[in-house]
Design a binder for these strands. Sequence first.
RNA 1: GCCCCUGUAGUUCAACGGAUAGAACACCGGCCUUCUAAGCCGGAUACGUAGGUUCGACUCCUACCGGGGGUACCA
Length: 551
Amino acid sequence: MREIKEKLAKVLSEKLKVEVKPEDFTEPPRNVEADLALACFNFVKELKQKPNEIAERIASDLENAEAEGPYVNFLIDSNALAQSVLNEKVSKKEEKKEKIMVEFAHPNTHKAFHIGHLRNIITGESVCRILDNVGHHVTRANYQGDVGLHIAKALWGIDQLRDEYEKIKKQDLDKRIEFLGKTYALGGQTFEKDDKVKEAVFELNEKIYNKDKSIQDVYKTTRGWSLEYFDKVYQRVDANFDRFYFESEVFEKGRETVLKFLKKDVFKKSQGAIIFEGEKYGLHSRVFINSKGFPTYEAKDLALAEMQYKEFKPDRIIHVVGKEQTEYFKVVFKAMEQVFPKLTGKEEHLDYGWVSLKSGKMSSRTGKVVLGEWLLDEIEKRIAVIMKKSTVKDKDLIVKKVAIAAVKYAMLKIGVKVDMAFDIEESVNTSGDSGPYLLYIVARIKSILRKSKVKSQKSKVVKINEHEKVLLLKLAKFEEAQAEAAKQLDPSEIAKYLFELAQEFNSFYHQCPVLQAEDDVQAFRIRLIQKVEQVMTVGLNLLGIETVDEM
RNA sequence: GCCCCUGUAGUUCAACGGAUAGAACACCGGCCUUCUAAGCCGGAUACGUAGGUUCGACUCCUACCGGGGGUACCA
């Protein structure tokens, strides 16, 4: 498609003596029977002609072009289109490569893992694949919070439930995680209400930072539970990481860095704490070292950035973090410019939208959260019911894959930055704009390919009908979708594209029989659906979704 | 208070300055002796309000109204 536009743009540029760019072409509206359109308004100034006249001029001696008011509509030759679409590789990586670090997941140990985390991981994983796919060198980082007040709250909670803790130690992971969630909630709630408890939690926090021996055993044990659990979740949703960072490995360095730059007046003492004055830059001030002398998240992020840069020398570092931290990152990046000038312009915050529940709000304080694993289990159960009568091989595995596809697609089809009201009923839906709908296309194609005895042939020229052409045109647009997704860091561009492709395919499927067609036509259609299957598989993979042969 | 984001069918989302604002779910009606009916075909309904910029605005600007987030010692 890119080549077609470039070629056409060149012809028109020469003709008009005005630069026409490939991206000037748009998609004609549905009621217009054309494949490509050009609006002529932008050439009015240079050509000193009315748009309608320009359109006429362009169309006048051009085949396959027709002026309609200020627009020119172009028809693309079907056979040429088929040639280019069917012979091109589905995914071609560009030459110029950037080194990009994508930091995502970053869960906190000792805390519940809810569907907001799920969106983060699913989004991060997909963004990595999308960037890698267009030729970047991607490093996947995961920065896990294993020190800080949240841990102190959990440890306080454990202290209250000591007997239970001793018993639960010997039980399976799910039980231990459930217990950990309970102690965190208990600690968190009591912390708010009771000042004495507040003090006790602060003391515990100090002990964590000081690696106090009295808590090491329980700290390390429970930290281990969390990490074991995270691993299990990562595996389940097929998220991969190259480097795990921990707050515990950067906090000391963070403190040193802030103290060092305090002397250089980058930071300032204020009310016993050390802050960065964001007001100077139209932002707000933030505490980097608190009045007890402990580094906050801000200070740790400075040290983390330095470490990441030293280890990988990335051109970009993308932090996939919820949008409630937008202002936070602005301040930290501003401080970073002064502390590590090399990182200026390299740090980015990819702020994805909220996940709320359609039925009421989700809140970790009140304990009203939907746990990530619970959601996955629930969806698996429902898919299993749908597949109850199915006789496919490896049914259990297919149920799992379809369930993951359902969740991932439900979360990725919405624009990254858009808040989503997560509806369990809808995410489980296996019809319409859903993961299973897309997997179904692939299963259908594979089924046809298994049954076909005609081999796909390259050279035969056949008469291409409108259904086939529509499909070819859609296939030709995959490249643009990939580029757009990478540019915007938005998997929904891919999701949208795949759904449209799937719709076109289903339309074709019902209109154009493959196995009943004559040999030449059949050979062409086989090639066509093979291409659809390839694009679908590559595209779904960019979303982190595996296809299935049957369902 | 100040700063940022946001408002599109009953619901969840598209439309990235261009031609009659698209889907999906839900609802109603058709289509399986023919490649998987988790499918296809047909059907009603929407741009928060008021201005402005532009040949042209869902898209950019301003005000108002509604929703969310942030705003110093959490992460």
